[in-house]
Amino acid sequence: MTGRTMTWARRTLVAAGVGAMAWWAVLALTAVPPRWWLSWGVWLAGSVAAHDALLAPLVIALGWVALVWLPARRRRDEGGVPTVPVPAAVVLRGGVLVLGTLLLVWAAASWSPLS
């Protein structure tokens, strides 16, 4: 992609994006009753806060414990094992992602009035 094409592609994308967000603002003002705005804002901010302040640190901490701290302890105690082998680390990370996803959906399912 040439520099000129890149510039125009970026401008087009940003302009379209700003247009879509402007339409969101129109819809927010005309199609959503004002009495819902507060809880809408709380859920918008709350969902990202729940991820950044709770879920992500938990996953990072789990990863550090499983992939850094525990292997370091084993290395010290057993005087040998270098780190978690790559395949095991991949399986651990993948397992957390798969189980975490299913756990979140299961939590919603188990609280559902349909269950």
Partner: peptide
């Protein structure tokens, strides 16, 4: 529309 707009701006940036 907010998701679409923010995604387009993000990809543009």
């Amino acid at each position: 529309w907010l998701v679409l707009g923010a995604a387009l701006v993000h990809v543009g940036v």
